[in-house]
Nucleic acid binder design. Sequence first.
RNA 1: GCCUCGGUGGCUAAGUGGUCAAGGCGUCUGCCUCGUAAGCAGAAGAUCGCGGGUUCAAAUCCCGCCCGGGGCUCCA
Length: 628
Amino acid sequence: MRMLQIHSDGFGYELKRKAIKSAEKVESKTYSTDDSCLVNFIAAESSDEKNITKASSLTAQMIASAAEDVKEKNIVVYPWVHLTEAPAKPSVALKMLKSVAKILEEQGYNVVRVPFGWYKAFSIHCKGHPLAERSKVLDVETTEITEEEVTEGEDLTAIKAEEEAHSKFYIMEPDGSVTPVEKFDFTGFEELRLYVKYETAKDRTASEPPVHIEYMKQLELVDYEPGSDAGNFRWPPRGLTLKRAVEERVIKEMLEYGAHIVQTPLIYDYQHPSLKSYLQRFPSRQYVVRSGDRDYFARFSACFGQFLMISQAQVSYRQLPLKIFEIAPSFRREQSGELAGMRRPRAFTMPDIHEIVADVEMAKQSILKQLEFIMKLHAELEIQYEVSFRILRSFFEEHRDFINAVVARVGKPVMIEVFDERYAYFLFKGEWNVVDAQKKAACLGTCQIDVENSQRFNITYIGEDGKEHYPLILHTSPSGSIERILYGVLEQAHKDMKRGKKPTLPLWMTPVQLRLVPVDDSLIDYCVELGKELDKYGIRYEIDDRSLTVGKKIRSAEKLWIPYICVIGEREKKSGKVSVRRRAEGDQVEMKIDDVAEEIASKTSFAPKQQLMLPKMITKQAIFSREV
RNA sequence: GCCUCGGUGGCUAAGUGGUCAAGGCGUCUGCCUCGUAAGCAGAAGAUCGCGGGUUCAAAUCCCGCCCGGGGCUCCA
């Protein structure tokens, strides 16, 4: 906000014509007074948009203080955009000026607010005393520091630092060579080209909706819930089956990695000292939960719950690296315009592991180990992904061998962002991204070296010397949120379809792996018998017991992308085999039911057995959003 | 949050001021007992997102709100 203040003998204006479409409606086009008044020409700036309330109240404060100095009760608030080169949007400016006027009125001043959005003539007569002409500049953020009560350790400079930090983008190849992105030959790396373009040029135009949204409804996986807040989804049984299958898969991997599995609360106290400080890092995007006369926020990640838990645990150097894992919902109240299906919801399920390490050396070793499960899980998603690393320049230069080893393990060219000043809690961050049909990118897995939060949350371990030490913390999501995974696999299915392949979901997570299709009603009982064999292998199947033609039943199963469709008639009952349509192979073969089960089981042996979470008989299943 | 486009039975979708709001899918009933992507016939199902306004008359025009898509911004 910028402001020119004139203490004047009298003031008048006349509206000439509208300067902008959204000019305020007015009753009278002229105003004039001979009374003494303090005229404030005010320009709202784009920086004020970050916190209009604060900007308004500080501006009002400045005016009141100036009015106090010259003992003036009459105030004129005059919108004058020409004071700044970075004006706020008109709507914001108007909101702010209205708010300033209101605050001053409440304090007992006589306020005249000059209409917004008009070309005006005005007359003024400056009193000419030493305090009669003054100008003020308000920076919402820096002023906030001096005006607000700030507890020790709070770091308000971070957000600003992030804006000002400047960084360079490179492509790093598995052999360790580094090329600035603008000089790299992307031939053969089309998705990496798109990803880099998205990250650096910030080209974000899309005309079509994200393709996964259509599929998520048709396949009856997940759907909007108009009765909830935007970005909070409902999961019908097919989708829930998939979600659980993925969750259980990640949990299994984390247990094998040696993690402690925990669960922590969903809501947290705004007033808790560590959390208060942590929240200063981030814009206010929290869901607020009112309980009694106190406010809590719904967690936006699993970090604090785990940090608070570890900070009160007994940890010895003998247990390092110590691994804590949790998978549970998190909530971020993103701006409504940012929401986009499963790419960006407001409620999501995030697998989150925190690894406590003694020092940078141990951190590097652990990262190399984490890379193994991150790479493995992403491979199991059967999606194309692009990897990037964001690294503090000093760390990049001092640990070049480590960076080389990391990129070599990824095994293909990656994007590297090297930044000069640390703008967040990490000095090293890896991201595994998908690029979708809209040419937009979103991050799945991530791993970060956090050098800040052990102090903030007072997390310590007892070293060999018997003394307390602050560790480093590795923040890692082995797979990204379940919602993002679904987004990734559906977008991948779309890419496959464009290349002429039938779209599929990975066999281990697809809700129904096999459907038994009897050619007529008399064979339903036999299908139930066959189902018992499938149960022995933990195969997820259902039986199409509807009275439909075989063609119709096949079509129905194909529309749901069911990977194995088994047709059963008298012939099969006699031969003891079933006729199998295999989606991935695109063929039709005669097999014994045990062999089909064996095949599915062996292709999915790495995943825990997951039950299908609805009745097996299709006539007993409600229709939520599938077509047939 | 701002800008912009949209919302019509469970799904899809025609209708842009004037009779009982078209069709398709699905659902239900009956027939057919069926061999690898849509068998036949009939029936039920809609306060046209919600609220207000303009008009003799509103799904249709205007205002506000809710939900969704896209853009800006943002992405801990």
